[in-house]
Design a binder for these strands. Structure first.
Length: 477
DNA sequence: CCTGGAGTTGTCCTA
DNA sequence: TTAGGACAACTCCAG
């Protein structure tokens, strides 16, 4: 009986899973394995929200596997040591897995492959997490793209060329029992009561991911293209955490989006572009592997970020800046493990530009609190906002959170949902309560400085300070 | 080889 | 009230 290990990482699904599918076709016995080895990711070991998701997603995967005659094996420790141990126990001939694309993972997987192959183990890595392999695309001068639009023009025509594999319906477990840690023993689930709050908003696992996609297609992604900028509307796909953990593949999403009728072409196109952005984020991470910590634009190494961050940073983290839209966003993040995309840009712009705090502090907080925390997307997003990344926002583009709120949350539905203490304010003052006359504040019983803070900084002054700071690193004319 | 246009997500001032 | 211009620098590519 020939036996293979299928090593699960960020591909926690039975559908369209090439490593699992190929192993199930070629081997009589398959051992599905998850290895808990957070240290191997260094600074980017999963944060608290990711661990919560991972715990439940592994439970769902384990349940799915048990329905097809198999069992998820969970082990903890150094990846290569764990693999070797299991190979020895079970006389395994091959290890199959789907690639992940973070630089630390690519380096580790290369080492593991070389080492196991040297001792006669057949190691096979499959490509399924992205629509395009990062190393395959270069511009005409042979260097990596740094701007999204040319990258998009290059891949646009191929977006639909994605094979989708059938679900694996049966898996033979090895005759000899395989020891596994109980999921609860792998310190994934945070003890905070905080986890209960996120749990109310999400259902991890492949089945839920497919239901989310099905609903998106059924609604014909109704209003996505026009509505995705309005945080009070529930038109975004909310697929991001499912995609991050590979409960669904980008190929499956593209495949299903093709069903949308011609009348929904603009919604479909908008969604497909978002998947292209995801590919672009991984593309940049592959070609510029230091960017999770280092600014892509070297000039920003000299940028005068605020040195003492403590007071401002913690107020931002907990949504106590005194700017309602920023605080609403940070509250949504804290309570649900997710934040609307436009509000991510606005809260990030406020941290980096108005508070002058290094984008890495923001990236670290998002990393810990987002259920969809993803190294490529997080890095691209923060560097873009800070102005130091690829295709970045120009230095003068500083979001005014009040202007943005009046434009994208005109009725105040989003701010009132997350900051109920301000709900009584009339729309006119909701987004800038410090401008409300005292009789309006009294009538609504809101005391600025206690029930809700005064603004941490003056928006106009801090904007000017940011422009002056950016001026110090501009090239001389 | 050179040149010009265009580029996910903005703000503010002026006329 | 609203539209237009200024606010960089750089990347990529079509012509």
């Amino acid at each position: 009986m020939r036996t293979a290990i299928v090593w699960f990482q960020r591909d926690l699904r039975l559908n369209d899973n090439p490593a699992l599918y190929q192993a199930s076709q070629r081997f009589e016995q398959v051992i599905p394995l998850y290895i808990d080895a957070p240290k191997e990711a260094g600074l980017w070991a999963p944060g608290a929200a990711s661990r919560w998701w991972l715990h439940h997603s592994l439970a769902a995967l384990s349940d799915s596997l048990s329905r097809i005659g198999s069992l998820l094996v969970i082990r903890s420790g150094d990846t290569e040591a764990v693999l070797r141990e299991l190979i020895g126990e079970q006389g395994v001939a091959a290890v199959y897995w789907n690639r992940r694309y973070e630089p630390w993972a690519e380096a580790r997987d290369q080492t593991v492959t070389e080492s196991l192959s040297a001792t006669g183990i057949d190691c096979r890595r499959f490509h399924t997490g992205l629509l395009h392999r990062p190393q395959d695309l270069l511009n005409r001068s042979g260097s990596p793209y740094r701007v999204f639009t040319p990258f998009w023009h290059r891949i646009e025509a191929q977006m639909f060329d994605q094979p989708v594999l059938p679900r694996v319906r049966q898996l033979n477990a090895p005759a000899k029992p395989v020891a596994s840690l109980p999921l609860a023993d792998v310190a994934l689930k945070p003890a905070h009561a905080w986890a209960d709050s996120i749990a109310a908003h999400w259902r991890p696992g492949q089945a839920a991911a497919e239901a989310v996609l099905q609903r998106l297609v059924d609604r014909a992604a109704d209003g996505y293209a026009d509505g995705r900028d309005y945080p009070a509307l529930a038109v975004t796909s909310r697929l991001s955490p499912h995609l991050h953990f590979g409960e669904i593949s980008p190929g499956q999403i593209v495949y299903r989006l093709q069903e949308l009728a011609a009348g929904d072409a603009s919604n479909r196109q908008s969604l497909i572009r978002q998947l292209a952005w995801r590919d672009f984020a991984y593309y940049l991470l592959h070609h510029f592997p230091k960017t999770p910590e280092q600014p892509m634009n070297p000039r920003f190494r000299e940028f005068p970020w605020r040195s003492n961050t403590d007071r401002f940073l913690s107020r931002w983290q907990r949504g106590r800046t005194g700017i309602p839209l920023v605080d609403a966003g940070m509250t949504e993040l804290w309570e649900t493990g997710w934040m609307h995309n436009r509000v991510r840009m606005i809260t990030a712009s406020f941290l980096t530009k108005n508070l002058g705090i290094h984008w890495l502090h923001g990236a670290r907080w998002f990393w810990d609190t987002l259920v969809d925390a993803d190294l490529a997307n997080n890095t691209l997003g923060w560097q873009w906002v800070a102005g130091c990344g690829a295709d970045a926002a120009p230095y003068f583009r500083i979001f005014n959170p009040v202007t943005q709120a009046r434009k994208f949350d005109a009725e105040g539905r989003y701010v009132r949902r997350w900051l109920p203490q301000l709900a009584g304010l009339p729309n006119r003052y909701l987004h800038s309560p410090w401008e409300a006359p005292s009789d309006v504040l009294e009538a609504t019983g809101i005391e600025l400085g206690s029930a809700y803070p005064m603004p941490l900084v003056d928006l106009g002054q801090s904007r000017k300070a940011a422009l002056a700071a950016y001026d110090t690193i501009r090239t001389p004319a």
